[in-house]
Amino acid sequence: MLTVENLAVSYKGIQALRGVSLKVTQGEIFALIGPNGAGKSTLLNAISGIVSTQSGTVSLEGETLTGKSAHAIARRGVIQVPEGRRVIAPLTVRENLELGRQASGRRGTSDEDLDRVHDLFPILAERKNQLAGLLSGGQQQMLAIGRALMGRPRVLLLDEPSLGLAPVIIREVFDALIRLNREGMTIFLIEQNARLALETAHDAAIIEQGRIVHRGAAKALADDPVVADHYFGRAAAAH
C-alpha cells in the first residue's frame, strides 16, 4: 500500500533520516517506535510532503508521491493526524470536521461521513457546536482523528496519538483505531508508548538515529528480550 525506499532527509546540516526503507501492507496497522529525536516525526512529515527529501522515494500503490505538495498527497488519500492535535481552536467541532473534508479536495456535505465520525466518537456529536479550543485534550485528539477521516483516507498517519492523554482516554482512542482497521483502514502509527504500539500493530519497525534498526511482526518485536528491555524498561522507569 505504502512504500518508502532509501529515504534521506537533512535539516540544516543534520541528517535526520538515513536511507529509511519500509513497507506498509494494505489493511494493516504498522507501528514505528524509537527514542525521541530518532526521526519518527520527520519520516511521517516526509511521507506527507511537509518536509523535502534529499533522496529516496515514497509511493502509494505504485504511484510516486515524492516531490508532490502536501495538499496533493492528502488528496491522494495519505492523511496525517499531527502530533499535538492542532485543531483550529476558534472554529466549532463541526467546522473543524468540514475543514478536513475540504482540505482533502472534497466539496459539499455528506451525512454519511459525519455519521461515521459521530458513531466512532459520540462526544463529537454532543459538542458539535462547541469551539474546538474548549474541548479537553482527549476530545481534541478525537476531533483531530475525525477531521482526518472526513477526507476518506486510504492510509491514515498518526503521530503520537497518546501523547498527554489520560490512560482511559488512550484506551478509547486506540479502541477506535482498532475498529477502523477492522473495517479495512490501513494505519501507520508513530507512538511513544512502545508496548501499546506493539500490542496494537500487525507489523512494526524501530528507528534509531535516522536508521531502521529492527523490523518485523509486532508480536515478535514485543517478545524480543532486547527490544523489551530497551524500550519497555525505559518506559517503565519513566513512569
Rank of each mutant, 00 (worst) to 15 (best):
P167G: 06
R127E: 02
E160T: 10
R152D: 09
S104A: 15
F121V: 13
T109Y: 15
K68D: 03
V81C: 00
L156M: 11
G67A: 06
E126F: 07
G138V: 15
H118L: 11
R107I: 12
E126H: 07
N129R: 12
Q130S: 02
G77N: 03
D119I: 09
P82G: 00
T92G: 03
G62D: 07
S136C: 09
I123T: 12
G67C: 08
D115W: 07
G151V: 14
A38Q: 13
L114R: 03
S104V: 13
G77H: 01
G138L: 10
G49T: 02
I169T: 02
A103Q: 12
L163M: 08
G56H: 14
Q141N: 02
G105M: 09
D159C: 04
D113M: 09
L135C: 03
L157S: 00
R75K: 10
T42Y: 14
L114K: 02
H71Y: 15
T57Q: 04
E95H: 05
L120A: 05
A148H: 10
R147E: 06
G56T: 12
Q140T: 15
A89G: 04
V155K: 00
R106Q: 15
T57R: 08
L91M: 12
A148N: 06
Q102E: 14
G133L: 03
P161M: 08
A132L: 01
L143H: 07
S41M: 13
L43W: 04
T53L: 08
A74C: 09
L131Q: 15
L131G: 01
G77C: 00
P167D: 08
G56L: 13
M142S: 01
K40H: 06
L158I: 15
Q130D: 04
P122A: 14
V87S: 05
I73L: 04
L120I: 08
S104I: 12
I73R: 03
L97N: 01
A74P: 01
S52E: 12
G133P: 06
G164V: 14
P161D: 02
A125C: 06
L156I: 13
I50E: 04
I50D: 00
A144D: 02
S55T: 02
G39W: 12
L143R: 00
P90D: 12
L120D: 03
G138R: 10
G105K: 06
L120Q: 00
R152L: 12
V81N: 05
G39A: 11
G49A: 07
S52G: 09
E83N: 11
I169K: 03
L143W: 10
A70G: 06
Q139P: 08
L157D: 01
Q140K: 00
E83H: 08
R76G: 08
V78E: 03
L158S: 04
A166I: 15
P90K: 13
G56Y: 12
I79N: 06
R86V: 10
K40I: 01
L131T: 15
L157C: 02
N96M: 04
S136M: 09
P122Y: 11
Q102W: 14
M142Y: 08
A144F: 07
D113L: 13
Q102R: 15
G137Q: 05
P161F: 01
G137K: 00
S69M: 10
A132G: 05
E98L: 15
L149M: 06
A132V: 14
H71C: 02
G56E: 10
L65W: 09
I123H: 07
I79F: 03
E112K: 14
K128Q: 08
R101G: 04
R106W: 11
R116T: 13
E126W: 02
A70Y: 11
S110W: 06
L97H: 07
L131H: 10
S48E: 00
